[in-house]
Structure formats: structure tokens, C-alpha cells
Design a protein around this nucleic acid. Structure first.
Lengths: 357, 357
DNA sequence: AATTATTATGCAATCGATTGCTTATTGTAA
DNA sequence: TTACAATAAGCAATCGATTGCATAATAATT
């Protein structure tokens, strides 16, 4: 794998040079390290003259503060740890980008871990971040969930915890959520308004709260519109493109097949549906309506374009980071857990826009 | 922005508990901290009995090692810093995911920064990572490039540096590159083989090496096939979907317009081309051939699907991390800079597959 | 000019783990 | 049983920055 498309060749070299410390600066100026520290951190208590002298010398000696030392002393890292199932999944990549914007503004850093949807990895990630003394852990739990002891352990160690999107509901932590239920209600209601009546649901793993909520929203919308629930129209664990394609084939083979499919798991699922519909020669949206979830970039480009739900992921990342910094200020007073709910937005596109019956 | 789709409500609380240190364990067992340290780090010199005792007590007291302290003492972080222009761009997200896989296996962490294509931000990111004493910095330079002093500074501080994809060529560092030139040669040759003769090029900013190389490849392929270079077919800085669309309109308005366009900057550019072609009623690939770059997920889904170049991004991330760990082992001996070149792969799809003339 | 109030600087402990060196303990060989 | 080797455990310095407290130097007040 990491072998046959590589060509390797060598060049020259580098060397280690000992770093300048505040002691080096102090020695050179015949001062005490504490003064240097004060000058650099700008904590009054130093005369303007020496401060200037110190800053100049620092620059001249190419001084770079050693964060490890100051972190140890201060017992803080100015770092936020992030644990996501997959870094390179659009939603999470956007969340991270959103987090980064705000943490950067505040002079904090981000340490990233991915659990790969594995419980074991998730526990390890948590431990690493605890050892690193990060100030805060931001996480979305892995699909494989066994126990929340590791999550509790975060708080035991005095580290702030913000859960987002996929959360361990029962835990009393800061949470930033999408209103999945509401979004699903809107999506399904939209389908109903477009004249679809036999609406199928592709579900994600029900151990994850987000997928349960989306299902609830689906049921709620049907109820609100007085549409009977047909269990055979609800397919479990259809959360990849392939699984969804398969589920779609089964659905369309029913004697009374659906006239619309709400792929509540992702846009990739919706894509699977579209693919099968195309194969079977069904016209979308006329014969089959489709709605996905997440507003992946490609939904705009497919033919027909796909109706979906935008989760405001980057803004969600921003919100998470802002929540941390706001709470951090209240610090000792520890105002306690809050939940922020972000309202996703239904994006109506061709795949569900039936030219009125 | 971070206000109108939020609902906030409050719940209960958490508290700080002082962390257990090796001293606590030592005190409890009437031992010296050094023994505890040795037992935990598994450096012989401790009897089996006491080691077991210590480990058990550690568990019981919920001990979590303080990495800040040991990092300071060891002068190392077991951390790799990553600087990319944008975290949530497919290529970079994949690189990061690839990096993470391998660094995780080796017990290292990843600190992520994004330069947002800004030179100033890039410099700041570099400084932060130097202060953090990361073991290695992995970076791809921002489009806005002024000077490489900050990059040199990395090495001055004894930190390993691996540049990838967009690199400061003149610097003598570890590099992991795509063979952009070769990939472009193949792409353009493919177009020629499909019978296209008036092949246009959409270029990226020429201050970035990768875009220069892609242009070189284009020129080389034309030369190899004895096709005359027409400067008016080469459009600079067409590196967003919008800019490319505009460039395409200009190209197609020429008296002798191109019959194929190589959007060497990205698949988004290719999308811009496709969009304009559709607008103008040109059939792709018959009247106009299109080739993009990057193999974004959507290229497979568009209609027609888009021919493009896969950069093996995740594998590239793996390769970068492996390079670091391999080099780290040679450590003192410092075998010196190497370059690894990854061969991208041309993915031929509908947008360039002309049913032979 | 003498005394007090301010400000600048130095001193030394601290954060928690690591590690070279010394000392105590146990085991082995003669 | 004595001498010596091997192993276990303790001591103390160290990594570099921060910070409360003490002292020195300067400015302000009467």
C-alpha cells in the first residue's frame, strides 16, 4: 500500500540548537528570570526601560517561550480536545473548521482525535486528552456505544465537557445539538404538502439519539397529517449508500410501494435511493420523491438535485467553541451545564418538488 | 449569526477534584515517587511485588499521568503539528485522517491549525507549534506566500519538518509530493487520444509549485503530441467554480474555441466548466471534453460524470506520518531530508470519453 | 532632610514526572 | 560465615516558566 507509488531520494541535513530560555536572557542582561517572565507576559511590575530591553534581547536571541513549562506551572493547556467519529466526514470536518476559527481567535489550540466509530478507540482518546490536561473536550460519540464511564471521568478530572450532535443523553453536560426531530417534521411535512402520501423512512442505528429523534420527527409529521404509519415502510440501519440502495429495492418491490423516501441517515443514503430509482426508470420527483440529510456539497449537483437538510455545521462548530469560552469566563462560579439547540434548515430542491398534482 | 437559531437552557453542575499524582501514590504506599514513576513507565528496577502494588493503587486512586509534566521533563510532546490552508477541504481532511491513523498507532497526537490561505496566520501557526515543542510539523503552505523565514525557524528549533503537496521548493526539508507534472501529462495525453486537439488549460496561482507543475505537464504533453501551444487557451487564476465558469465563457467565445478543457486547479473548476457547457447547450464529452483534478466525491455523480485525478490523499497522509516515524528512529544519526513522490491516478469518466470519432 | 509610599527587582518555591547517582537490601558464591 | 554481586529503593536535581513574598531603589510627602 505505502510502497508502490513512491520514489524516494535523499538530500542534506539539519541540526539541533539549544533553545533560548528566560534564564539565558536574564543572564545576558544581569537580571533575574522572574523579571524576564514578567516583562514577557506584560504583567506590570517591570519598568518600561527594562521591559523594552528584555523584549529586544528576546527577539535578538530568537527566544520562543516554552509552552510545556508554562502549561505545567499554570496547570492549563489552552487547548481544546476534539473527538469525532471521522475527521474526513463533511459534517465533522466542518464542525472542526468552525471550532478552529473561534479557538484560534482566543489563542487556544485544537487537538484532534478520531474514534473511527469504535468504542475502544473513543475511550483511549478520552484518556489521552485527560492526560494532556486539555481545558475542554468536545465530542460526538461513536456509533458503537457501551458505557459512559470514560465520559464521566472527564468531568471527574475537572475538564469541561461539551457533547455535540451525537450525545450521551443521560449525562449532565454542556450540549450542542441539532433539532433533528423538528427538522424531520419539516422534511416530512414538506413531502406531504407536495402530495406524497406513502412516505418511507430509511433509519440510522437507533442506539444513536440523533437517529431516534429523526424517526420521532417522521412519526410526528405523519400523525399531524393524519397519515397512517406503515411499519413495512420503515427500514432500519440503512445508513450507507449501498444499504440504502438495497432497502430501496425492497421498498419499491412492495405491492403498495412508497411514493417518497426520506433518507434520514444521510445524503449518501439519498444518493443510493436516487441511483435505484434511475435504474428502475422511475422519474424523480414525479413518481418518487426523495429527501436526504446533511446538505452535502453534491446534493446540489446531482440530477435531479436533492432536497436535504442543512445542519449549519460550521456555525455549530463556532457555537460550541463560543459556549466554552463563555463558560470558561464564569469559571469558578461554574454556571453549570447548558444545552444549545441549533435549528437545521430544510433545503428544498428538485428531488421533492413535484409540479403540483 | 450565533444567536437566532439557538435556544438555551440550564441544568446542574460539576466540580474540580485534585488530580492524583505519583507523589500521592508514593505517600500512600510509603514509597518514593521515583519508584512509582519507574513502575508506571515499566523501566525495570522495581520488584514485581511493588510494581503490582503500585499499579493497583494507581488504578484505585484513579491516577492519570500528567503529560504536561513528563513532556517538560523529556522535552518532547509526542505530538505532530499540522498546518493546512483549510481543514474542511476534502483533500486536506483526507490527509489529516491519514495522518491520524498512523500517529495514533504510534501513541502520538495531532495538533491541527488552519492558515486560511493567509500568510500571517501561517506564521502564527508555526510559532504556536514551535512553542508547544511539537516533535514534528507537517505543513502545506498557504496560497499567499511572502517569505520562508518562519519555515526555516522550525528547523532552527530542532523540530522535524515535513512539507507536503504545496511546498517551498527551495528549502531542504522532508517532502511528500504528488507527481503533479506526470499526472497532468497523462490527463492531457488522454484527451489527445480521445481526439481532442484544441485543449485549453485552467491554471491555478503560479506562485504555488503544484500549479506550476500541472502547467508544465500540460505543456509537455502538447509537445509530445506535436500540438501547437496557443497562449489564448491558457487561463490564469481560474481556481474557483465561479472564476472557471467565467474563464470558460471567454474561451468558448473565441473564434477558434477549445474542444476540451483541462481544469487543472480542482474539480470545482471542472464543475464550473460543465455548468457553462450545459448553459450553452454544448454536449459533453462530444463537443467539449472536460478533465478536473482531485477526485472529489461529486465527480462520480454529476451528469456526465467527470474525468479527474485521484491524489490518494489518505494514503498520502499515511505516508507522511510513516516518514516521520521512520526518520525519528534514525534520530541522532539524522539521515537528512528525503522526498517521497506519490503517483496520482487518472480516473477516466464520461466527461472525456468520446465514442471514437 | 527625614519619613513614608511606590515601584522595580530578586529570591525561592512550585507544577509533576524523570533519571543519574547513592544507599540499602537481598541473593549468590567461595 | 564472609565477601561480593545484583537488585530494589531512595535522594535530589532537573525541565522552564510563574508567582507570592521580601528587599532594594526610587519617588512623593511633610
Amino acid at each position: 500500500m505505502h510502497n508502490n507509488y513512491f520514489h524516494i531520494f535523499t538530500a542534506t541535513n539539519m541540526k539541533n540548537q539549544k533553545r533560548t530560555t528566560i534564564y539565558d536572557i536574564a543572564r545576558k542582561l544581569n537580571l533575574n528570570a522572574s523579571s524576564v517572565s514578567r516583562a514577557l507576559s506584560n504583567t506590570s511590575k517591570v519598568s518600561e526601560a527594562t521591559r523594552k530591553l528584555i523584549l529586544d534581547t528576546a527577539r535578538e536571541m530568537n527566544y520562543q517561550p516554552n509552552s510545556l513549562a508554562s502549561n505545567l506551572r499554570r496547570g492549563s493547556n489552552r487547548t481544546i480536545g476534539v473527538i469525532v467519529p471521522r475527521i474526513n466526514q463533511n459534517f465533522f470536518a466542518d464542525i472542526i473548521a468552525g471550532l478552529e476559527e473561534i479557538t484560534y481567535e482566543n489563542g487556544y489550540n485544537l487537538v484532534i482525535c478520531q474514534s473511527n466509530e469504535s468504542y475502544k478507540r473513543e475511550v483511549e482518546c478520552v484518556n489521552t486528552l485527560i492526560n494532556q490536561q486539555v481545558n475542554c473536550i468536545v465530542m460526538s460519540v461513536a456509533a458503537e456505544f457501551e458505557d459512559d464511564e470514560h465520559i464521566r471521568n472527564i468531568q471527574k478530572n475537572g475538564i469541561r465537557l461539551i457533547q455535540f450532535d451525537r450525545v450521551a443523553d443521560e449525562l449532565d453536560t454542556l450540549k450542542v445539538l441539532n433539532d433533528n426531530r423538528q427538522a424531520s417534521v419539516e422534511a416530512v411535512s414538506h413531502l406531504v404538502e407536495q402530495g406524497y402520501r406513502r412516505i418511507a423512512l430509511l433509519e440510522g442505528p437507533q442506539n444513536l439519539n440523533i437517529f431516534r429523534q429523526r424517526k420521532e420527527g417522521y412519526l410526528q409529521a405523519l400523525a399531524e397529517h393524519g397519515i397512517e404509519v406503515r411499519p413495512e415502510l420503515m427500514k432500519v440501519n440503512a445508513w450507507t449508500q449501498e444499504l440504502s440502495a438495497e432497502a430501496t429495492r425492497e421498498l419499491l418491490a412492495l405491492s403498495d410501494p412508497p411514493d417518497a423516501i426520506f433518507a434520514s441517515t444521510s445524503d449518501f443514503s439519498a444518493l443510493g435511493v436516487l441511483q435505484v430509482a434511475t435504474e428502475l426508470g422511475l422519474t424523480v420527483p414525479d413518481q418518487l420523491g426523495i429527501c436526504g440529510y446533511s446538505n452535502e456539497a453534491f446534493t446540489e449537483i446531482t440530477n435531479p438535485s436533492i432536497t436535504t437538510i442543512d445542519q449549519h455545521s460550521v456555525e455549530m462548530g463556532n457555537a460550541i467553541a463560543r459556549l466554552y469560552f463563555r463558560e470558561a469566563k464564569l469559571d469558578a462560579t461554574a454556571s453549570g451545564p447548558k444545552t444549545i439547540t441549533i435549528k437545521p434548515q430544510l433545503i428544498i430542491r428538485e428531488s421533492s418538488s413535484r409540479h403540483k398534482f
